[in-house]
Design a protein around this nucleic acid. Structure first.
Lengths: 147, 147
DNA sequence: GTTAGACTTAGAACAATTCTAAGTCTATAA
DNA sequence: TTATAGACTTAGAATTGTTCTAAGTCTAAC
């Protein structure tokens, strides 16, 4: 088990939202609770499914609005690995990703384990937003002699 | 001007398709011609627009089919930077990308200029597919003192 | 010339996301 | 306590990018 990961309580989530300038409505707290409950990457559909596991309480529009707000406020980060699917990543530590092209699973790579040097100078009048490294992997095929 | 870039002629494109095991139909040659005519990154819509600049000769379905085929055959590479938009990249040299989050412009970074070391070991029974590095940049804001 | 298979097509279907317009909540002021 | 304004949420429609489907066209081999 990864000792660095700590799920956080409800009050802590409320505080986290406030700190990021987000009014903690019940829907937002619930969604944040899901995102921070475990080290995982969810897409909007999955968040929507989880948030409504019992009875439908949060609309799809709110899920999208809220995730968008969290991104804008820097609470979570989007990861693009496939067309037409965005993952939301609540891991605040600098890190990158393995993406299993077969299963669609996304897992973290600690940025400390990746040395990225010598980026060329940025184009004029631009500033760095983020550096995304996605290592695409696939299940190894049992070796079959090509025909 | 970048001396390494050479647009290629029609015969060379036909040959390129053949070498990749792609039957060179007129539509495919036309689409490949667009992709390789200049160092640029196109999304499917842009390819569709260009291929039909004069009169509509290639259907949208064929554009998508063809781009998908080119990807499957390793002729071009997909780049994901935004939800709901795939770029197709005909640059065969190892390289990464700057992505201007404001303008949506994608530009190449020669991989030789980026040292990526010490990737952690891949998960069991997986093999490397590719490593995508996307450096997100934005236009620098003129400095305004925060209120 | 036939024919089989590959290719292309228009348009329908689809999935993820965003928009819209109306309704609800909540914090503050009276 | 009630009124009110603005923020928030909602269902469902609309939009966007992409894939599917079924029919038609082309081409290469016989």
């Amino acid at each position: 088990m990864d000792m660095k990961f700590q799920p956080i309580g409800r009050e802590a989530i409320t505080e986290l939202l406030r700190v990021h300038g987000i009014t903690p409505t019940s829907q937002r707290v619930k969604i944040a609770g899901i995102l921070f409950a475990e080290r995982a990457h969810f897409c909007a559909e999955q968040v929507y499914a989880r948030v409504n596991e019992d009875d439908a309480e949060v609309s799809k529009a709110t899920v999208y609005n809220t995730l968008g707000l969290f991104v804008a406020k820097g609470l979570v980060r989007q990861v693009f690995v496939e067309p037409g699917k965005v993952f939301y990543d609540s891991n605040a530590h600098p890190h990158h990703h393995f993406y299993d092209t077969g299963s669609g699973e996304l897992t973290d790579i600690d940025a400390l384990g990746v040395a990225l040097h010598e980026l060329p100078p940025l184009p004029a009048d631009t500033e760095l937003d983020s550096v995304d490294v996605i290592v695409r992997i696939r299940q190894r095929q049992p070796k079959i002699r090509p025909a």
